[in-house]
């Protein structure tokens, strides 16, 4: 009896979690008439016409490319800088390490509003609002603290003897970093990189303010579907599916690290 109750509760839970997602994907595969039918159409023959519409939309493709370029560049910078800093900090005494880590992470508690408005104001005066580098720079600035603290946890797992042995052999710090730390912690570095991509790809507020016509990312671009008279739910849901699908895949790849990374990303920061 208890077992049955457990399975029923679990089924309800999964239904609540998955139904909204299923409904988005299902709607994206329906023709316009079915998408808005009441009572809802449960059985339908899937059509790709919404996807065809979205994928032939130049603005959407452009935003897709922007999202790829911006999130990859910002994440490469974040992980590159983060790895150097993490390497330096892991070599310090516990107290110095914690103190610096705490300081860097404390910068992230502030709401983005407070640094985005001055950034916008300055960028507007320098005519940089439609420039990829401004948004890449801001995303790197936001993700570096996160990358540092996550990478520290991976670097700490590397036995000190490895580093000491290399030093005895006369290796320079940068050589140790490149030849020992990077390869040994590669899994952690890749996970950190993927999480940075995930955060950047999903980010909306900063992108909304700091991107212009040519640099719009997907979350910003998708809102343009909303402003027209009467929302085109079919194509909108197809676009939404295309935006989130890569992140679901990435999320599954780094499953174990997502929650760990997110709690680092926001608490201490």
């Amino acid at each position: 009896m208890r077992r049955i109750a457990f399975w029923i509760a679990l089924a309800i839970l999964l239904l609540c979690v998955l139904f909204p997602l299923y409904w988005v994907v299902a709607t994206s595969l329906k023709i316009q008439r079915d998408a808005f039918a009441m009572p809802p159409v449960w059985l339908f023959s899937p059509t790709w016409e919404n996807y065809a519409k979205v994928l032939s939309n130049g603005v959407f493709i452009r935003a897709f490319l922007n999202s790829v370029i911006i999130s990859l560049s910002a994440s490469v910078i974040s992980v590159g800088v983060g790895a150097l800093v993490a390497y330096g900090l892991v070599a310090q005494d516990e107290a110095i390490k914690r103190q610096n880590e705490k300081f860097v992470l404390s910068l992230r508690i502030a709401p983005p509003l407070i640094f985005i408005i001055p950034t916008y104001f300055l960028a507007a005066q320098m005519k940089l609002l439609n420039n990829h580098w401004i948004i890449i720079g801001v995303y790197a600035f936001v993700n570096i603290p996160f990358a540092i603290s996550l990478l520290i946890t991976f670097f700490e797992d590397i036995p000190r003897e490895l580093r000491d042995a290399a030093k005895v052999d006369g290796a320079r710090e940068f050589t140790i970093f490149r030849e020992i730390f990077l390869p040994v912690a590669l899994g952690g570095i890749v996970a950190t990189f993927i999480l940075c991509v995930l955060f950047t790809w999903n980010e909306f507020f900063i992108a909304l303010v700091l991107t212009g016509r040519d640099t719009q990312t997907l979350p910003v671009s998708i809102t343009s579907f909303l402003t027209f008279q009467g929302v085109q739910w079919g194509p909108l849901m197809a676009a939404a599916t295309l935006v989130m699908l890569p992140m679901l895949v990435l999320g599954m790849l780094v499953q174990g690290q997502v929650v760990r990374g997110m709690s680092l990303g926001s608490i201490k920061g």
Partner: peptide, 26 residues
């Protein structure tokens, strides 16, 4: 793994999804 889905979903898409589910007429 399923519980991870909402967490990694793009928040803008979450907003759109719920706007769709909560549409007053349809």
């Amino acid at each position: 793994a399923i519980l991870l889905v909402p967490i990694v979903m793009t928040p803008v898409v979450v907003g759109l999804t719920w706007r769709f589910l909560l549409n007053p007429t349809n």
